[in-house]
Design a protein around this nucleic acid. Structure first.
Lengths: 212, 212
DNA sequence: CCAAATAGGGACAGCCCTATCCCTTTTTTT
DNA sequence: AAAAAAAGGGATAGGGCTGTCCCTATTTGG
């Protein structure tokens, strides 16, 4: 068993905080992740434990979201309270200027919430260990809507969404091959999951999502 | 099989959009949920399908987040494109004044992202059918940090977090009883899951979260 | 027309999560 | 000291998800 990887997510929006915590806990074999909604709770935890990674949204309750001083103060207080950790700033309203400011405080990543997708954590950590800093400004990448249906298993969801985003002009078999490669399963299995998912949707809904 | 409940989530932050979609798809027996990152994608979907529920974050890419006209315009265009749907506005920076403005446009809910927790959707829909409007302004409720560990199953996670938030002064047995009631399982099972979870954490981490 | 691709299934084993019931030992409380 | 509470575990049945292999029609493309 590897050493426990310790992380703290400081973010006031509960759904986002839980999503980030889930990202971290699934990215590591053995991770313990704490979530703090306020600076007070964060500082309390930082005083009692050493963390490997701290993710910070500077727009916390009790601070003026339009005041750059407030944002900088939140991050700098957290960094001072955990000098050995890696610090990633995540924000809804990002700018290169602000990225530089936080980098000056010692942060190793600056991430815009828009376009920050599941699985991005590994890429960010790669950036950090390679170049010492990771910056991901908000950008719009979506061309096809996300789809999600109660009747589908996670695997089926995944394959439906991969299929919907396929590049046009490929045969189904080629796509199955490609999707199977991404997921580490057989082409047959990918084909099977896709057909099963489509059948479920047709049965309950009689209307398929775009791209299927 | 009940009729398929159709919902659309218009939100540019991917993790938040997926979290909201997941909330909806698990709240209904049979739901098909689409996610749109931009107004263009949203309007395209609204033109091709009728939705029961549309959730809108007015701070979309391509609009000025500080311009109240832009925010109102996003919501009003979506409402006009789906006159039969219920419309809920969700925002990171909420105010009662803005809530009134969106209500004037026809929205039936105004939700602040801070403090918007998993499972809140049912309460919001209850508010709407009871009083015609649901407003949930941002507020800080957290007293104990969230906790999440790779080694725990979802059930174990849930029970660990419920236990950490217990009211002081109750015996363990009473708390097991209460938690079991919330989850609809036996007291013995709740006790078992809790002990299993704690043992896993101790084995991998040798450090228990606050409140356990 | 023939071959490939596609649609739409069935069967099966393995695994993990769930939920319940059971047991022993130690600690705390009365 | 006796009773209650708590820690720590074993065994088991059921169910769903996963992944693989296999099957038959039907459609499409060369």
């Amino acid at each position: 068993m590897e050493r426990t990887y310790r992380a703290l997510v400081v973010e006031d929006q509960t759904l986002m905080r839980l999503a980030l915590m889930d990202q971290i806990s699934t990215a590591f074999e053995n991770a313990a992740v704490l979530g703090a909604q306020t600076l007070e709770i964060a500082l309390y935890e930082l005083a009692n434990e050493n963390f490997d990674l701290v993710i910070i949204d500077p727009g916390l309750p009790g601070f003026d979201p339009t005041s750059q001083d407030d944002r900088l103060s939140v991050v700098s207080r957290i960094i001072e309270a955990s000098p050995t950790a890696l610090h990633a700033v995540i924000t809804g309203s990002d700018s290169t200027a602000e990225a530089d400011q936080f980098r000056g405080l010692g942060a190793v990543a600056y991430l815009g919430k828009t376009g920050l997708e599941p699985g991005m954590l590994c890429d960010v950590l790669d950036d950090i260990s390679t170049s010492g800093f990771s910056i991901r400004l908000s950008r719009v990448t979506m061309t096809v809507p996300d789809y999600c249906h109660s009747a589908l298993t996670p695997r089926e969801q995944e394959i439906i969404n991969l299929m919907a985003r396929r590049e046009p002009g490929m045969s189904r078999i080629q796509i199955y091959e490609q999707v199977a490669g991404k997921l580490g399963i057989d082409r047959d299995s990918a084909e099977k999951y896709f057909k099963k998912a489509r059948a479920k949707i047709m049965k309950s809904d009689h209307k398929l999502p775009v791209g299927i």
